[in-house]
Simulated assay, not measured.
Amino acid sequence: MNTADDEEVLVGDILALTLTAEQAGGRLDKTLAEHLPDLSRARIQALMAAGQVTREGKVLTDTSAKAQAGEYELLIPPPEAAEPQAQAIALTVLYEDAYLIVVDKPPGMAVHPAPGTPSGTLVNALLHHCGDSLSGIGGVARPGIVHRIDKETSGVVVVAKTDAAHQGLSALFAAHDIDRIYVALVRGAPTPPKATIVTQIGRSSTDRKKMAVLKSGGREAITHYSTRTVFGQQKKPQAARLECTLETGRTHQIRVHLASKGSPCLGDPVYGSGPPTPAVRDAMAQAGLTRQALHAAVLGFVHPVTGETLRFESPLPPDMAQLEALLSAL
């Protein structure tokens, strides 16, 4: 029988663990999670509720009970079928191993199914692409989404394939220990050209479909931005290219923050109040830009399982690249 030090999760099999007297004494679910790092505490609680955890053959259901020394067995059921259906959708894969996959998401693709977008999403594509290599997130054979970018925002996304990777990536994002750089083409240019925006972001009180900068409530949001290129006259810029580094990851954070500075993303249908100049509008039409000009260009992190330092860069997609070229001629 294996000990906690050399155990690995066997999906659809029995996971065995021996707790010594020194390891016992703490809350049961927490103790098991500490000694079984590939299973989250929530997963262990769900297994106990389903009667899948035993000690010396006795079923354990009280998660708050004290852990006792002895031999434990956890029955890990095979992953349930995921609700979203696998779809053969082409993906640009930047990196993939047994634990995670990094893709360059095109504009127009939602990350996961939702009302209005039941299919054609990144999750549908990953279910087909990854197939049996998905060992299950929380017991379900599905990709583990740890961060999202908007449907019409393009760029780099990392997705977990295992519970261990999902927990590790989630911890990195929660600790803000991850590099995320976005490129935005915006109306005008913000003042000052380089700064850090710190606000509270939450649901707008006037439009529940929108996020907004709030004076009270909401969640803290921090965006660092730097103006890289100004298009048009320096004294009266018509547009600019910005690099935005996220310290937090709130819904629509960059779009809301840039709009609050008076320089919303070009083409933003929600936060782009006020029209750009006629020359910029012509450039947007010629480039075929029909979305917010926002691209997740860089994603860097330490691999949660192997410890390898990874960094991925994505060039501007065709619509933004052409728009930037046209703006350069202003």
Rank of each mutant, 00 (worst) to 15 (best):
P79I: 08
E83S: 13
Q85V: 13
Q85S: 13
A86M: 12
A88Q: 15
A90E: 15
A90K: 15
A90G: 09
A90M: 07
L91E: 06
T92E: 14
L94I: 09
L94Y: 03
L94M: 09
D97P: 09
A98H: 12
Y99W: 14
L100Q: 05
L100R: 03
I101S: 01
V102I: 01
V102D: 02
V102P: 11
V103C: 01
V103W: 00
D104G: 06
D104T: 10
K105D: 02
K105C: 04
K105Y: 06
P106A: 00
M109T: 10
A110E: 05
H112V: 01
H112I: 01
P113Y: 10
P113M: 12
A114E: 13
P115E: 08
P115K: 11
P118N: 04
P118H: 06
P118V: 00
G120Y: 03
T121G: 14
L122P: 05
V123N: 02
N124Q: 04
N124I: 00
A125R: 10
L127T: 00
H128A: 03
H129F: 01
D132F: 09
L134Q: 04
L134T: 03
L134A: 02
L134G: 01
S135G: 10
S135D: 14
I137M: 06
G138S: 06
G138K: 08
G139A: 12
G139S: 12
V140S: 00
V140I: 15
V140H: 06
V140Y: 07
V140C: 01
A141Y: 04
R142L: 01
R142P: 08
I145P: 03
I145S: 01
V146G: 05
V146K: 01
H147E: 00
H147S: 02
H147G: 04
I149A: 08
D150N: 08
K151P: 12
E152N: 15
E152M: 14
V156M: 07
V156F: 05
V156P: 11
V158K: 02
A160I: 09
A160R: 05
A160W: 10
K161E: 02
K161T: 02
T162C: 06
D163C: 09
A164I: 09
H166W: 05
Q167R: 15
L169I: 10
L169A: 04
S170D: 06
S170I: 07
L172I: 07
A174S: 14
I178V: 15
I178Y: 14
Y182T: 05
V183S: 13
A184H: 12
L185R: 04
L185K: 07
V186L: 10
V186W: 12
G188A: 08
A189P: 13
A189F: 06
P190K: 11
P190L: 12
T191R: 15
K194R: 15
K194N: 13
I197R: 04
Q200Y: 05
I201E: 09
G202F: 04
R203Q: 11
R203P: 05
S204E: 13
T206R: 15
D207M: 09
K209M: 13
K210R: 15
V213D: 08
V213I: 14
L214C: 06
K215R: 15
K215G: 14
K215Y: 06
S216P: 12
G217D: 02
G218A: 04
